[in-house]
Amino acid sequence: MVRVQHENFDVGAEVERLRAGNPRVGAVACFIGVVRDLNDGDAIATMTLEHYPGMTEKALEGIVAQARGRWDLYDVLVVHRVGELRPTDPIVLVIVASAHRGEAFAACEFVMDYLKTEAPFWKKETTPAGARWVDARDSDDAARERWEGSAGTQ
């Protein structure tokens, strides 16, 4: 399941919902992305996230489907926030439930690596010098490319 929303998320409640009533779940891996107060050496006052409604949800669903195709997963949740955020605010939540930790950890990282490079979100940050759009990082492309050509591992 994927959600794009302005409001914050409750990690504990989401984890409980994801594994509720499924005694086969033996591992739940969770990633939370958070707004930092410093980027490229400048203090960050606010970060505003824009997205492409419609395509964003399709892209996230496609990434989750790819992860499910590579690993044996019971459930996956992606929640991404949009709008104005501040340092220490959570931005993104990925939760993966599976039988064992290996596929849960791997799938969680896979979803984030693809989300960073394929899901249509854009960050604009305000610093003491004014507002600026955040540039994409080559290291994010490299992180995604690690997965290409490698099959899922159990």
Binding site: V92, L115, K116, E118, F121, W122, D135
Partner: peptide
């Protein structure tokens, strides 16, 4: 058809 800079979410 949409045009946009490289994405920066997450």
């Amino acid at each position: 058809v949409a045009f946009f800079p490289p994405v920066t979410g997450g």
